[in-house]
Write a protein that binds this DNA or RNA. Structure first.
Lengths: 370, 370
DNA sequence: TCTCTTGCCGAAACCGGTTTCGTAAACAAT
DNA sequence: ATTGTTTACGAAACCGGTTTCGGCAAGAGA
């Protein structure tokens, strides 16, 4: 009887040219036990003897059994898929970021035999709708939330719906969220330290958009660096909101036109720092000599410009992996507030910083002349 | 009885703080018909009367019923998910490409209420393993295969396993695959035409890696352009295998050192074309004056360099959408050989091409001197 | 009027898992 | 020896859908 069934199944599979999957019933039949027992054995239920557990494990392994996430999901509600909703309408800020990041997430996910469901949306309300849909359709058991805003509607939504998530970045009010972040504030502090060591005393800061929480942190880092170096903070040398090259160029121009312009600039974001080159050229100044620049992100374009941009490189691939690991642990039930990690960015020296070859006064004169 | 059940369910949902989904049974109960009937009505089975079909449709809509893809999948084997396996180990060739492309795929997918499962792997065998796994686990009903190779192992695997797929690019031997592609050969032909119109007669060609099928096509386009312009083809002015900036710089150097160097270069790939700037500078030549350059891809970096690179821009977002649409149709059973579309790249004029300001001889002399 | 189709739908099996429930056997306690 | 607990597992219900099967009623043909 059993044999006949098996033969029939095999024959059917052969006709359909479909090498049929090994199901949990196959394993149970092979062992002559109930399929419920197999399920409980594989899921470490306490009411299964060690002997049986071992036996089942071995047989399942031998037969190449792998549970079908879909089938599990309809009962458990979880399908071993992590969700990632990306924003499309950012100028291009995520372009360099994306590929490495995805690689890291995907690697960590498949190492744990999870999969990755990706969606993109225009941001704002649409993004929330998309996440809602993915949760409703059980296409994701939890989410990675990249580019954290100071007050993040996505985090609120997920918390309200009781869906696990981990932030790439930190929130203003810490709450009990899980997060991973690169300590950008440390990098900013080190940037100031390095410039001060070069001999700079007037160091400006071009920050990113204040809607992102990282901007607040990086500004703190800059301020701390200034204080530690014993330098005065001049609020007129701080500009924020520069996320693109154009905005960076604009901010650089503004700062260099001050009465007492800076001889060095710290940027919160590479894309903005690249704008400094255009402005410098326009004003007849040389980056790395007349005006030093240190930035943050470590996008490939840093190596493109002349002189190469000194920047703190962020390992987005690693970040993706860490985030995924944290998220999986969160989904498995670990307390979010215990799931927090950070890493540091590493300095990639280019030629864009060095001892000041012009004084603030000289720069002011040349800017006025040009 | 039914009312009690409903109340119990609601109460349970309230306790779990989980607004329970509307299931197919809910719809069936509300109408007082069998759930099988609801299923068949919604799936357009022919043995359901129009009256019933309408009634079910309306009620389902009204109740906000949406089938759970997971549950459908365990019976049908399909879960309305499209698979995308990306390669991590390409130098960065996909970096600009990725974000737009993903946006397109994701948009088209969610418009059809499908989802997108993404995996990345190092290419080669690992990529095949990854696809295999996704198929086994039914995480993808079909695949988009980007960056088609002349002989593509991924396409063979999928064909063998009888999994629908659509290529981004064409195969050497056409077969019966579905594909979408941008007609790069047309762009190359137009590039030559444009340069010839400028007055160039010695036009070189720096091709991409011959493992990619697009390289063969683009070379054909270049050759056709030369023929149509009535120009002699000099095989010593054709180099292939340049996919990176370094390789592009190298190739440019080689060509400009020929006895009779070209006054214009056509590149198959932007990343390579960017290398021409470095080489030109090194040789004391000016891009756009001494040597004209036209390229292909339209990556953002084109606008970065001076003079901006004239390039044929590829709309990767649109490509992603088209590919997704084709794939869904293929999964739904349409014949792959009928699922083929193409589009053209559009010229983005920069300042990197123009009438030759130096003759081939002059260039040769200056290269020899430098 | 009586059969033979045909159209339409209900009932139930099924997909591949998980989880509840009940109980036989082994063991401990009396 | 009897009773009460555990331990470990089988049987069956269940998750949310799809698909098969069978039969009733209406219409067609004789």
């Amino acid at each position: 009887m059993i044999r006949e069934d098996a033969l029939a199944t095999v024959a059917k599979a052969a006709r359909a040219n479909t090498s049929r999957r090994v199901t949990i019933s196959d394993v149970a039949n092979a062992l002559g036990i109930a399929k419920g027992t197999v399920s409980r054995a594989l899921n470490n239920y306490p009411d299964i003897s060690d002997a049986t557990r071992q036996k089942v494990r071995r047989k399942a392994e031998f037969m190449g059994y792998r549970p079908l996430a879909q089938a599990q999901a309809i009962r458990t509600g979880r399908s071993r898929a992590i969700g990632l909703v990306l924003q499309t309408d950012i100028p291009g800020a995520q372009r360099p970021f994306l590929s490495d990041f995805l690689a890291g997430v995907s690697k960590a996910a498949s190492d744990a035999s999870w999969t990755l469901t990706v969606a993109m949306s225009a941001g704002g309300q649409e993004m929330l709708t998309t996440m809602d849909r993915l949760v409703d359709e059980r296409k994701a058991d939890g989410f990675i939330v990249p580019r954290t805003f100071s007050h993040d509607a996505r985090a609120e939504l997920l918390r309200r719906r009781n869906v696990p998530f981990v932030l790439y970045g930190r929130l203003q009010e810490i709450g009990d969220s899980a997060w991973f972040d690169i300590l950008g504030e440390e990098a900013m502090r080190e940037a100031v330290e390095r410039l001060a060591a070069h001999g700079h005393t007037r160091i400006g800061f071009v920050n990113g958009g204040k809607e992102y929480n990282f901007s607040h942190l990086r500004e703190e880092g800059y301020l701390r660096g200034m204080t530690e170096a014993g330098l005065d903070v001049d609020q007129s040398l701080i500009i924020s909101g520069a996320m693109t090259t154009e905005a960076g160029a604009e901010a650089t121009l503004t700062l260099l036109r001050r009465a007492e312009p800076p001889t060095a600039l710290v940027f919160a974001v590479d894309m903005a720092a690249l704008g400094a080159y255009a402005t410098a050229e326009r004003l007849g100044l040389t980056v790395g000599k007349d005006v030093s620049v240190i930035s943050y992100d470590g996008i490939p374009e840093c190596a493109w410009v002349q002189p190469p941009l000194t920047s703190f490189r962020v390992d987005n691939k690693m970040a993706g992996s860490r985030l995924t690991e944290l998220l999986i642990r969160s989904i498995r039930g670990e307390e979010p507030s215990t799931l927090r990690k950070s890493a540091k960015a590493t300095l990639w020296p280019g030629g864009s910083d060095g001892p000041p070859e012009s004084t603030s006064d000289e720069i002011a004169r040349r800017v006025a002349a040009g």
